[in-house]
Design a binder for these strands. Structure first.
Length: 385
RNA sequence: GGGUCGGUGGCAGAGUGGUCAAAUGCAUCAGACUGUAAAUCUGACGCCGCAAGGCUUCGGGGGUUCGACUCCCUCCCGGCCCA
């Protein structure tokens, strides 16, 4: 269940209630694709203030496999993450593995055949299987299998992906209802289900896709495919308009978004949920996000000024820089260590460095989202899904 | 003292008459990363130049040759073996 507590013209603050607890919106989920946020224990994620994390259907299905997960109970038990979990459907892998490298699989109207990049083994995902797996994972929020085309595909092919995504969404919804019935899951305990809106940069395709998905009916709607164009520019207008197509009482999930400024913009357009590998991956690669101001909120919402900057701790200039990474951060890196030490950890290829950097970046993201949640406190709106 | 192998760019280490400013790895210097095939990937890395191109290099010196990192002489330095 999703409740909007307050809103400004477009952005809003709310609360999601799930079987495994509440999540305050807007929120950011770190990607625990294979059942773990690389190098970071769940205890630390909780301490950072993250209320939900994202796992991936395709990756967990491959490894460790559903037999193991079911033997453990579900993904919550297996991972020892008792709080809300959202699973992505494997739809993104249709893009990242197959669209980007056709050798790695095949997409038909009925199914997706993945050839595992690691051992070449073949695995079939259908909309129904994707939903069944997500029920077996025991997640609190699940996503329909979709077909995210690269943004530089011709319009015709993107339109095809839209139609396929709609057909698959219908099949997912049907399977979802079947599973709810078979598993005798109550309305209060049922996981939320998200449809995914495709359409590339074409607003009328995005609109059409949204309308068709809304007819099927979902708890939330995701923005599918990449939200940056082929040149790497944030597709601001598409994100803004697409949010406006989605009914107000539904959750809006900006999948894979993004950089801090992209999240802030999406939030202002009315998006509620975000996930991205940036804070963890870039942290592991040595890029650290640093607050330019004490209050992220003010700069992020009320001015055009950059509210953060990044550094690459690998750069030689940090060799003897004994200052803190971020004076305004209270993460375990910033409280305890200097840039020079972190630089040393990185140049020694010590995993502690990557870990501390990822933790710092996640804290930055968590603090940013907290600032956004605190940014709206005018009128309250009660809505029933 | 005799013998022997060797001395190549920051380091390690290929090359053994022209295709060599010299493979490769490391180090160094930068860059990228957006529902994770990513502790990964790109690029630069003798000097000058945006570039084309030019210039100086393979322990020192001398020589052979149209041409030498590559062959010869000699000196210096190092490893190993024998005395």
């Amino acid at each position: 269940m999703f409740e909007i507590i307050s809103k400004k013209p477009d952005s809003r603050v709310g609360k999601i209630r799930t079987k495994n607890g509440e999540v305050n919106t807007p929120f950011f989920m770190p990607d625990a694709t294979r059942g773990f946020v690389r190098s970071i224990d769940n205890e630390i994620l909780e301490k950072i203030g993250l209320e939900a994390i994202l796992i991936n259907t395709y990756h967990l299905f491959l490894n460790p496999g559903m037999e193991i997960i079911k033997e453990a109970g579900d993904a919550h038990n297996f991972m020892n993450w008792p709080k809300p979990l959202l699973s992505d459907s494997g739809g993104y892998q249709v893009f990242s593995l197959i669209h980007k490298n056709p050798k790695l699989g095949k997409i038909t109207d009925n199914e997706v055949i993945f050839c595992s990049p690691t051992d070449g083994s073949k695995h079939i995902l259908t909309p129904e299987i994707a939903i069944q797996i997500q029920f077996d994972l025991g997640v609190d929020m699940m996503v329909c299998l979709d077909d995210p085309p690269p943004n530089d595909y011709p319009r015709e092919k993107i339109a095809q992906a839209v139609e396929r995504t709609i057909r698959w969404a219908k099949r997912c919804k049907d399977e979802y209802e079947k599973q709810i019935k078979e598993r005798k899951i109550s309305e209060a305990d049922r996981p939320l289900i998200f449809g995914v809106i495709q359409g590339g940069e074409y607003l009328n395709l995005r609109k059409h896709c949204t309308e068709e998905l809304v007819k099927i009916g979902f708890d939330g709607y995701g923005f599918g495919a990449r939200h940056i164009d082929a040149q790497g520019n944030f597709m601001e207008e598409v994100l803004r308009e697409t949010a406006s197509f989605i009914p107000e009482n539904a959750l809006r999930f900006a999948l894979g978004v993004g950089t801090p400024e992209d999240i802030v913009k999406c939030y202002s357009f009315g998006w509620d949920m975000f996930d991205c590998v940036i804070p963890t991956r870039e942290g592991r690669h040595g890029r650290l996000f640093i607050r330019n101001v004490k209050t992220l909120l003010i700069a992020s919402l009320q001015s055009e000024e950059n509210f953060y900057e990044t550094i690459n701790i690998n750069n030689g200039k940090y060799k003897n820089d004994f200052s803190r990474v971020d004076e305004n951060c209270d993460c375990m890196l910033c409280k305890n260590h200097t840039k020079a030490y972190l630089h040393h950890l990185f140049s020694s290829k010590e995993m502690l460095g990557m870990r501390l950097a990822a933790i710092h970046n996640l804290k930055f993201y968590a603090d940013l989202l907290e600032a956004l949640r605190n940014s709206v406190n005018s009128k309250k709106i009660e809505l029933k899904p």
